[in-house]
């Protein structure tokens, strides 16, 4: 019978990403209440020496699939290897990150293994030993509580930044195991030929701890420098509303909302954003929301923890100044 929790660790250029530790932390909590173990699965090239940190967060075992062809994620290679290892280890629960990579992988795995998958979950619980998850739908306009039919593994992806990270315990060590798998070149139909890096060093909105976002009230692309300055002062990434993106002021990758990115930072500062329903949907799981808008009736104020009714061009630069004083 299927048993235990397996988590898929995500790495980039050999470095393990934060979501991987969030998954192991959550997996540990689930496994403890089930009285079972946590196995983290790490795929990559020459990555074995990086595997031990997963143990600090709660993994009992780390299965390492090391192969030059697994250096950068491709759907066909990763799905083939993971499906084989999942079948061999037979976990009851399989957790992945709701990152671009994790969502792609979970979707194809679910089809290959013909088992249920819950995408982009924000809360997990166990009922009679079965996984129950809460996931926002309609970009957060409603929440669905879901569970699985009797097929295993029960696959779920977790939204970055929402699961509680365990305090790393460096005295805890996981058993590191070389995974045995086959990977036939003939099934590899896709190949990463280039990686275009974002040189700005900006943290992606979906992973950002703080976001400063600007909407139509910014009046034009040339004014975003005041948001960039505020963002730099507090270590935030800059986002935008759909109207700012559709006007061509900001790139598509910056859009927050139902047809853009759904974000969960600890601090979201909305500047000159009225709060169209499709925007609110994309940021309402932020822990603290600040709204700066000169229209007191803007719907954004109904979601904001702190609101300032004022011309943003007067407030934002002062805000940056005040923050610099205390940092």
């Amino acid at each position: 019978m299927a048993e235990g929790v397996m988590t898929i660790a995500e790495q980039r250029d050999g470095e393990i990403r934060k979501i991987s530790y969030e998954l192991v932390s959550e997996g540990r909590r689930m496994a403890d209440s089930l009285g079972q173990g946590v196995t983290a699965l790490l795929l990559g090239a020459d990555i074995k020496e990086n595997a031990s940190t997963l143990g600090h967060y709660g993994a009992d075992k780390v299965l390492v699939a090391d192969d030059p062809r697994l250096k950068t994620y491709t759907t066909d290679a990763y799905v083939s290897v993971i499906a084989e290892l999942v079948k061999a280890n037979d976990p009851a629960i399989l957790l992945l990150g709701a990152s671009v990579e994790g969502k792609d992988l979970a979707a194809r795995l679910s089809a290959r293994l013909e088992t249920g998958m819950a995408q982009d979950c924000i809360t997990f619980s166990l009922e009679d030993g079965n996984l129950v998850a809460i996931r926002p739908i309609y970009a957060g306009k409603a929440y669905a509580k879901v569970t699985f039919s009797d097929s295993t593994p029960q696959i779920a992806t977790a939204r970055p930044n929402v699961l509680t990270l365990n305090e790393p315990d460096t005295s805890r060590s996981a058993e590191i195991i070389d995974a045995q798998f086959t990977l036939d070149d003939s099934i590899l139909k896709t190949k990463v030929v280039d990686v275009l890096r974002d040189e700005s060093g900006k943290v992606d909105l979906t992973e950002a701890d703080k976001i400063v976002s600007g909407g139509r009230g910014m009046k034009g692309p040339e004014n975003y420098n005041i948001l960039e300055e505020l963002a730099e002062a507090i270590g935030a990434s800059v986002g935008a509303s759909r109207s700012a993106v559709d006007a061509g002021w900001r790139p598509h990758t910056d859009q927050v909302g139902q047809t853009g990115k759904v974000v969960s930072p600890t601090l979201y500062i909305a500047c000159g954003i009225s709060g169209a329903i499709q925007h609110l949907a994309g940021m309402s799981t932020s822990k603290v929301i600040v709204a700066i808008n000169k229209d007191p009736d803007a719907p954004i104020f109904q979601r904001a923890d702190y609101g300032i009714v004022e011309d943003l061009f007067k407030v934002v630069p002062s805000l940056t100044e005040e923050i610099k004083k205390i940092m």
Partner: peptide
């Protein structure tokens, strides 16, 4: 269905 909806709620 492999994934069952138990309930929907407003956020």
């Amino acid at each position: 269905r492999k994934l069952k909806i138990m309930e929907l709620t407003p956020p």
